[in-house]
C-alpha cells in the first residue's frame, strides 16, 4: 500500500540525529512487546508479513508520530485480533482489571 511507512526518498524529516548514549529499551513495556513479537512468531500464530502489514495500516499521522515499539503494540494487537486469539473487548477488560489491581 502507498502508506506512510514507504519513506524512501521523502523530504522534510530533518537530520538523522543519532544519540550515542541511548539505551536499547526505554520502558519495561518495550522489552515485553519485543519479546512477544519474537514469541508469537515462534508460536506460528501469524507471519512476519502480517505483522508488517498491520503496522502499515496504522493511521499515517499516528504511524509517523509514534515510536517503533508502539508500532509493534498496534501490530501485535491487530494481528492477534485478526487471528481470533484475543478480542478487543478481552484486552479492554484485562486492562481495567490491571488498573484496578494497581490502584
Amino acid at each position: 500500500m502507498n502508506g506512510a511507512h514507504d519513506l524512501g526518498g521523502m523530504h522534510g524529516f530533518g537530520p538523522v540525529n543519532p544519540d550515542p548514549n541511548e539505551k536499547l529499551f526505554n520502558h519495561e513495556w518495550e522489552r515485553r512487546i519485543f519479546a512477544m513479537y519474537f514469541a508469537t512468531l515462534a508460536s506460528d500464530i501469524y507471519s512476519i508479513d502480517e505483522l508488517r502489514k498491520n503496522i502499515e495500516i496504522m493511521d499515517p499521522v499516528h504511524y509517523l508520530s509514534s515510536s517503533y515499539y508502539e508500532h509493534w503494540v498496534e501490530s501485535i494487537e491487530t494481528s492477534l485480533i485478526d487471528r481470533k486469539i484475543v478480542t478487543k473487548e478481552e484486552i479492554a477488560e484485562r486492562m481495567k482489571k490491571i488498573d484496578k489491581e494497581a490502584a
Binding site: I33, S66, L80
Partner: peptide, 20 residues
C-alpha cells in the same frame, strides 16, 4: 492527540501478555 500516554501503553502490553 494521537499519542497514547506511556501508562496506557504499558497496561495494554501487560493485558496482552497476561492473556497470551
Amino acid at each position: 492527540a494521537h499519542h497514547e500516554p506511556p501508562a496506557e501503553l504499558s497496561t495494554r502490553v501487560k493485558a496482552i501478555e497476561s492473556l497470551l
